[in-house]
Simulated scan of single mutants.
Amino acid sequence: MKVINKLVSAFFLIFGFLMIHAQKMPPAPNSGETSRGVVGPGAQASPIDMYVFALGIIAVMFIVFFTKKYTGKKA
């Protein structure tokens, strides 16, 4: 069981590191600036928009899991 916990922890650590660096945007074309660009028409959508439903499902799964885990120990 300890090996599984270490593997899951390593997975979340690597996944979190990759998500931190997931949204590196190049500078806006023809702006001459090194900023992240201008928000408006033609701007890139946020990458999290694609995963809203999956994140909601995962959140519900975590809620159910921890609710069952901790209510079982109280009795």
Rank of each mutant, 00 (worst) to 15 (best):
I20L: 05
M19C: 13
G16V: 00
T34S: 08
M19R: 10
G37E: 00
E33W: 06
K6T: 12
V39N: 15
F12S: 10
G32D: 01
L18I: 04
Q23W: 04
Y51P: 00
P29Q: 05
S31G: 09
L55F: 01
I48T: 15
I20E: 05
P47W: 02
L18A: 08
I14W: 03
A22F: 04
S9M: 05
F11G: 05
S35W: 14
F15G: 12
G40V: 02
H21M: 07
I57G: 08
A54E: 11
M50N: 10
A59W: 08
S31R: 09
A59M: 11
I48S: 09
M50R: 04
P47G: 02
A22V: 09
V60Q: 02
L13I: 04
A10H: 04
Q44Y: 10
A59E: 10
P27K: 08
V8T: 13
T34V: 14
F62P: 00
M61C: 13
F17E: 02
G32T: 00
G37H: 00
P27V: 06
S35T: 10
I58E: 07
I57C: 15
P27R: 01
Q23D: 11
I58S: 12
F11P: 03
L7M: 14
N30M: 12
R36L: 07
P27F: 00
I57Q: 11
S31N: 10
Q44I: 11
L55Q: 12
V39A: 15
G56K: 03
S9E: 06
A43I: 07
